[in-house]
């Protein structure tokens, strides 16, 4: 696939970051490329609410560096965890009503688990046209580490049960996430750093890197982080709950 122009699309938090990342990936100075801003992006929460900035780098002189625009699996991972278990339910959008239901369900569960905490909800708008709006349930309180558990086990169980109950009441699948004292954001940053480290390791060793088993929402973060990486691609292998992300070197391009 030789193109007239060599282009690279980069997604990052800001235009500046995307440009820097793209140039670093290409190994080119800033004056060797034209930068087209596809989307300025906007601030959001956990990379879900806001849109990331998208830019396209077009290499002026195509003497070196070839990179195709990469499509990585990303969104279907998000749709996966609950959808498959509620066969026959149409995928729905989150709205005020389902958000309030979610708040009541989480509050009820916590009360019965004898955990004191404040529960609030808000709607997170879709990150892009392929995404969906999402109910974000935020739980705040003292010493909620027991609610997160080892490897977020308890938090994921709470989220899973809540999703099932809310979806059952709504009659359609409602995308929902529970966050406890901002732990999702911390975990996301950790995962992004790990994704980049493991990608480097794959490049340095020439071997595929298999990550530890993760739930779908965490795998999605890895896929997204490496979506535009010039040298590696990501895929998920194995069966739930032991599905893992594998980072594979791309075939070296001919031409």
């Amino acid at each position: 696939m030789s193109q007239e122009k060599t282009v690279l699309e980069v997604i990052a938090a800001t235009v500046e970051e995307a440009t820097a990342k793209g140039l670093a990936q290409l190994g080119l100075p800033a004056d060797a490329v034209d930068v087209e801003i596809l989307d300025q992006g906007s601030r959001g929460f956990l990379g879900l609410g806001g849109r990331q900035a998208r830019i396209r780098l077009v290499i002026k002189d195509q003497s070196e560096g070839t990179t195709d625009v990469v499509e990585a699996p990303a969104h279907h991972e998000w749709a996966e965890p609950v959808g498959e278990d509620i066969a026959g339910l149409a995928q729905g959008e989150a709205d005020e009503e389902t958000a309030e239901t979610a708040r009541e369900v989480v509050a009820e569960l916590l009360e019965k688990m004898q955990v004191q905490a404040n529960v609030s909800v808000r709607l997170v708008p879709p990150a892009d046209e392929k995404d969906r709006s999402l109910v974000l349930v935020e739980v705040e309180g003292n010493d909620l580490s027991i609610l997160i558990g080892r490897r977020s086990e308890t938090l994921n169980a709470l989220q899973y049960i809540t999703s099932l109950i809310v979806s059952k009441q709504a009659g359609r699948w409602v995308p929902l996430m529970i966050d406890i004292q901002g732990c999702r954001g911390r975990r996301e940053r950790q995962l992004r750093v790990m994704a980049r480290k493991m990608a480097e390791q794959a490049i340095n060793t020439g071997r595929r890197q298999v990550l530890e088993p993760m739930p779908a929402n965490e795998r999605r973060i890895i896929h997204l982080e490496l979506r535009n990486h010039p040298l590696v691609t990501t895929e998920s292998t194995g069966e739930e709950p032991n599905r893992k992300v594998t980072i594979v070197l791309k075939q070296t391009q001919s031409s």
């Binding site: 569960l109 609610l147 308890t154 169980a157 709470l158 899973y160």
Partner: peptide
Amino acid sequence: GRVANAMRVLLRVA
């Protein structure tokens, strides 16, 4: 057994 196991996890906290 995913639903049953999730219930067990929450039950353990309780």
